[in-house]
Amino acid sequence: MSISIIKAGIFDTIQDAGRYGYRSAGINPGGVMDHFSAGIVNALTVNNINAPVIECHFPASSVLIEQDMMLAIGGADFSPSLNGVPIPLWKPVIAAAGSVLEHKRIRNGARTYIAFREKTDVRVWLNSCSTNTKLSAGGWQGRLLQKNDRIQMLEKHSYPLLHNGTAQVVLPWQAAIHWQEENEEAVGILPGPEYEWLDKESKKTLEERSFTISHTADRMGYQLLEELPYRHTNEMLSSATAFGTVQLLPGGKMIVLMADHQVSGGYPRIAQVITAHLPLLAQKKPGEPIRFRIISQQEAEEQLLTQRRHIVLLQHACRYKLEAALSLIGRDAYNRH
């Protein structure tokens, strides 16, 4: 019982919420770039919200589903289809054995997430299933998914809904993906430990202008093309960095560190992207503009708590919906008997 990769994507890996507790050994947490989308597809497939998912970049892998399975896709819209029939994002889908999942073209976003109710059997390394491609450890053989990879599943479920011979069934509930009243445009930041190094003009520039993500942007970091006027010559002793740390390089350019960042660095940390907005950033593509807005510590915390509450509520709702649907089907089948 498994899934097979029949066409490799450009950079598809197994990731979970990350590997914590090993920074002091120089090992970064890694994990999904967009924890919000990953949390939601996990909720839709009644998994733990931190469970491993497949993180895909475009072009993404084509996957042969070898057993009846329930899956959900969310994050970037890569026009997913099952057996050539388009399927929606943010909804649980039941696919019959033999189905092929493909991603035809990129509509928006940078990373899409696939979760299976049946759960992939992947390697845990230092308490996490996240793939660290640099260290060839964790996840699926410590590397990108390749053609002919066959990943075993941990669970098997039967789906009576498929018994009329259909290849796929889209279940009639959908995750709400707006966790805030208004959709945020600017990326929220908090002043970093070295924010005060900046002169007045640079502080103003940081908040007022729009910055372009360079073409080298990847899971390690996004370099921004436009510069801040401030030039630093001061050396700084290496200190901790994190996912979302905005470092200022000597030439005035900024780098936003992403999931696969190094655990420490010697460049001034002028700002830190709030955790709740890391998913916003994770769905930006090279060449896209971003704006920053400084918010308060309190607001950053509240946003993160609100976001998490949204996912947890969704998780409960999805579990209830699925149980109700499956028991109804069971009763239905019994009545017909």
């Binding site: 920074r23 290496s238 901790a240 915390e301």
Partner: peptide, 29 residues
């Protein structure tokens, strides 16, 4: 959730959801 000792600094990483459950309401995490 994690600790990073450096030359002259110690960084303490925390889970705001856990802090939220134990802290008094009037202060931030």
């Amino acid at each position: 959730t994690d600790l990073l000792p450096a030359y002259s600094s110690l960084t303490v990483f925390y889970d705001i959801h856990v802090v939220q459950q134990i802290k008094p309401g009037y202060i931030s995490g």
